[in-house]
């Protein structure tokens, strides 16, 4: 009995001390938790701030030249060419003079038209050659198709800087100097290899059963391809349209080499070479032209860039 009671007393004693300790411990733990939480919160805030600063810095680096174009486009010449004025702000009311000069006193609209004509024709040629080739390589030629596909892609690495001298002779030979046709015929040299490669990837994602079913239903092989598979690959084809057009619009070297008459220039060479009178740069209209030609294509391109990069990485990302 005594021993039991003693035991019970000991037990009670231990229980109470344990409870006390636990409570004290819980308080300390709560305090500690709170401190850690505050520290973490601060750390999180700091990290957030760091992240935004970093991203802000990169965005600034990327976009500042374009902000600089916006400023110059709407600034009066007097404001633009006063070295003491704050160059980042409008010290005088903004003006539309430069836009007026750009659209009425230069060939800018003609450059845009030429660019659109060349881009459109290049898109047509690219689609007509790259879509069937990509389909055939992706579907009917397993082993050598892959090798040939890579071979076609590698021709994309042969740069215009090696080809422009002989191609300028080709243009002269066929009487295509100073003609948009020279650009229309040459630009597919970089759109076909890249777009064929890109489309091969697209066609591989379309299950083979679909066209087999279509052929069982009575379509020819060609019919199955044209009527069943191509409509399914429409997003890939749209991507190719965007790239063929933007790559043509970006191109500089061939246009610089083949075309010297102002009225035949595309926007990528017309703006940098024609808006200079003698040695004097007309900065206002020049920046306006660069801005107007850059932004729309940049917006469209941004939506498709991931696919463009998927073409480069060739399945290195899985």
């Amino acid at each position: 009995m005594r021993r039991i009671r003693q035991g019970a007393a000991t037990e009670a004693y231990w229980a109470s001390t344990m409870r006390e300790r636990n409570e004290a411990g819980a308080d300390a733990a709560a305090l500690e938790c709170h401190r850690i939480y505050e520290l973490k919160h601060l750390g999180k805030l700091a990290r957030r701030g760091g992240l935004y600063t970093l991203l802000g810095g990169f965005a600034f680096f990327g976009a500042f030249p374009f902000y600089w174009m916006v400023i110059a486009t709407f600034k009066t010449d007097h404001d633009l060419f006063s070295p003491l004025n704050n160059p980042f702000l409008f010290n005088e009311p903004p003006t539309l003079d430069h836009l007026h000069v750009l659209f009425y006193d230069t060939h800018f609209v003609q450059y845009l038209t030429n660019t659109a004509i060349v881009g459109f024709a290049v898109v047509v040629i690219t689609l007509a050659t790259a879509v069937p080739a990509a389909y055939a390589l992706a579907r009917w030629a397993r082993g050598w198709g892959e090798t040939m596909g890579i071979g076609i892609f590698l021709t994309y690495l042969v740069p215009p800087t090696i080809l422009f001298i002989p191609l300028s002779r080709f243009a002269a030979l066929f009487g295509l100097q100073e003609s948009l046709w020279s650009l229309i015929l040459v630009y597919p040299t970089f759109t076909i290899p890249f777009c064929t490669w890109l489309l091969m990837g697209f066609f591989k994602t379309i299950p083979k059963d679909i066209e087999e079913q279509a052929m069982i239903d009575g379509l020819s092989r060609f019919g199955a391809m044209a009527k069943v598979v191509f409509p399914l690959a429409i997003s890939g084809i749209l991507t190719v349209v965007v790239f063929a057009f933007t790559l043509s619009m970006h191109e500089f070297i061939y246009a610089l080499t083949f075309i010297s008459v102002s009225a035949k220039k595309t926007v990528s060479i017309g703006v940098p070479t024609e808006l200079v009178r003698g040695d004097v740069f007309q900065w206002g209209p020049l920046m306006a032209g660069a801005l107007i030609a850059s932004l729309p294509v940049a917006v469209v391109y941004t939506f498709f860039l991931d696919r463009f990069v998927a073409g480069f990485t060739m399945g290195a990302v899985k």
Partner: peptide, 21 residues
Amino acid sequence: FLILLPWTAPISLGTIGWLWM
């Protein structure tokens, strides 16, 4: 969009912006 601008805009036009800078 801002970070991609240097690649998505035509290079000759972007470089013209730098020339002015």
